[in-house]
């Protein structure tokens, strides 16, 4: 494995570094930690690049590594909160209906989501990825991904009718 500067993986990394940083930062909300996660996921990706199959999309493959690094980060920081506890916590805070002036509340609500649900919101609504792609990135099946998305939207108190319909959820 002679990774030259022309390697497609290295080009992908260099061209998408800001995106990678945003995804990491959206998860951990801390600049140093986000930089650390970007660094460690790049190193891991390069060390494992022989596991990238020819037909596989580099973006999906890399995002999976990055998301796994974020999950490891959360496990280490003991931020994995049992779903039932988080549900109660969100009920306590005043639930505002979604409107233009309340997106800051929404962002702090997203911050409080359990890490797996947070990932799905970030990838779906900030990175605009298809559910099937998200399922690949998180190494789960499509129906689990859908139910996690529903759960996340429920916890965020977002109107499901306005956010998703069955047609878009089927992709």
């Amino acid at each position: 494995m002679d990774a030259t500067q022309d390697s497609p993986l290295i080009s992908f990394i260099q061209e998408n570094q800001e995106k990678l940083y945003r995804i990491a930062y959206a998860h951990v909300k801390n600049q140093d930690d986000a930089l650390d996660l970007v660094h460690s996921s790049i190193v891991k990706a390069l060390q494992k690049q022989h596991t990238l199959r020819n037909q596989e999309c580099v973006r999906t493959w890399f995002y999976r590594i990055l998301v796994n690094e974020c999950m490891t980060y959360f496990r280490k920081k003991s931020r994995l909160i049992y779903l039932a506890d988080i549900g109660d916590k969100l009920l306590e805070t005043s639930a505002q209906p979604h409107g233009q002036d309340t997106y800051l509340d929404l962002y702090s609500a997203i911050d409080q989501l359990p890490s797996q649900l947070k990932t799905i919101i970030i990838l779906r609504y900030f990175e605009d990825l298809k559910l099937s792609t998200i399922a690949e990135i998180t190494s789960t099946n499509l129906s689990t991904t859908k139910s996690r998305l529903y759960k996340a939207l429920e916890l965020l108190k977002l109107d499901l009718g306005g956010m998703e319909d069955d047609r878009s959820l089927s992709i």
């Binding site: 990774a3 290295i10 990394i13 260099q14 570094q17 970007v38 660094h39 460690s40 790049i42 190193v43 891991k44 990706a45 390069l46 060390q47």
Partner: peptide, 8 residues
């Protein structure tokens, strides 16, 4: 990023 690429 460049450092990570060099490390990797």
């Amino acid at each position: 990023v460049e450092n990570a690429i060099a490390c990797g």
